[in-house]
């Protein structure tokens, strides 16, 4: 029974990857945006190699994880295929998990490849395997969290991807700017630090800094816990809001 449920989630995820990986919004907001954001941030500035690495991977993970999940429902509402899925023998939770899994896997793959390239080019980024594991755990958690955030925004019962992407960007950019990515938390004034705690990205960057610099603003256990709590909150919120808005799509 559970095996069957998990298999259907996997089938859904595979379908989402196959159908949406090459869609315009995924390429623009998932790959091009973080690439050009990084270029504009790095070029002509005196930033340490570690800070660039942390910034690039955090931005890549955040942007790629929020690329697929927000567009699935609007596109499938427009193309009517959502009705086929809703009337198929699969629960809404399985449908949601199929989207999260696709989006998270996409993010995990891109972020892991870029991390690997950095590890190869800049040798000595990590002083031990434990840091690599922790770094990768951070990527995994952020991939899931970002996917859930994107999915949550797509609870708006629209069939236009532009509507969802607009709101997504309105949320993403403030979260990025208050996350301490551009300026480390320990040099920020206290009120700004409090504000930055509202962004889950802050805790990811803090874990990344711990892994490459050996020190962080919060203990890494707190960072991990906060990310897990955000995942739980987003998961519950997704179930609640999608259940409420799903009938309005038909």
């Amino acid at each position: 029974m559970i095996k069957d449920k998990l298999f259907k989630i996997w089938v859904m995820a595979k379908k989402n990857i196959n159908l949406y990986i090459k869609k315009g919004p995924v390429i623009i907001f998932g790959l091009m945006f973080p690439f050009f954001m990084t270029l504009s941030w790095v070029l002509g500035r005196d930033i340490s190699q570690n800070q660039i690495f942390v910034g690039i991977i955090a931005m890549t993970t955040f942007f790629t994880s929020t690329a697929i999940s927000p567009i699935v429902f609007p596109i499938e509402t427009r193309e009517k295929s959502l009705e086929r899925i809703i009337s198929a023998p699969i629960s809404l939770n399985q449908i949601l998990l199929g989207i999260v899994l696709a989006s998270a896997l996409y993010s995990l793959l891109i972020s892991s490849i870029i991390t690997l390239i950095f590890i190869i080019i800049f040798q000595g980024l990590f002083s031990s395997l434990l840091y690599i594991f922790l770094f990768w755990l951070g990527i995994i958690l952020m991939s899931i969290l970002g996917s859930l955030l994107g999915l949550l925004v797509s609870a708006i019962p629209t069939d236009k991807t532009s509507d969802v992407m607009l709101i997504m960007n309105l949320i993403k950019f403030p979260l990025l700017f208050i996350s301490g990515m551009f300026t480390p938390l320990d040099v920020l004034p206290f009120p700004v630090v409090v504000l930055s705690c509202l962004s889950p990205l802050t805790f990811l960057i803090d874990i990344f800094r711990y892994c490459v610099d050996g020190h962080s603003f919060f203990p890494y256990q707190i960072d991990l816990l906060v990310l897990v709590l955000w995942i739980i909150v987003f998961f519950i919120a997704n179930g609640y809001f999608h259940r409420k808005t799903m009938p309005k799509r038909f």
Binding site: K8, N18, L19, E79, S81, E83, R84, I85, A88, P89
Partner: peptide
């Protein structure tokens, strides 16, 4: 739901999937 076969007025098969891919996906569901 498994007891129903539904033919909608407007096709709701995945337009970017081939006929075979749609059948495979549906069969697995």
């Amino acid at each position: 739901k498994i007891k129903f076969g539904i033919v909608p007025e407007i096709s709701n098969a995945y337009s970017d999937f081939t006929v075979l891919e749609n059948l495979e996906f549906s069969g697995k569901m």
